[in-house]
């Protein structure tokens, strides 16, 4: 899941990386429709949730719920 800083965690090696940091992708003609991101640590191809409208929707729903928990209010 991308954190607030946009980092995602690789499924294979657990490495956290910023999928937008790879300028090579921007040169790719298929980039605009591509939902994958390559882990710079192990090279595994991951789904990039930032590219999915459905994932962004779920993220927003979940984020709102998180902020409403008493734990966060106490903090």
């Amino acid at each position: 899941m991308p954190g607030e800083d946009g980092f995602i965690t690789c499924a294979v090696c657990g490495f956290s990386f910023d999928p937008s940091a790879h300028e090579g992708c921007r040169a790719c003609p298929l980039h605009s429709g591509c939902v994958t991101a390559c882990c710079p640590n192990c090279g595994a191809t991951n789904i990039n949730p930032r590219r999915s409208g459905l994932a962004r929707l779920v993220e927003r729903l979940f984020a709102r719920k998180t902020y409403e928990t008493p734990f966060d209010e106490e903090r």
Partner: peptide, 16 residues
């Protein structure tokens, strides 16, 4: 596992 992470990844994979 964090429920939010799992749900977001599931949604992204599902869309794909």
């Amino acid at each position: 596992p964090v429920a939010g992470n799992v749900l977001v990844k599931t949604a992204a994979r599902l869309e794909w």
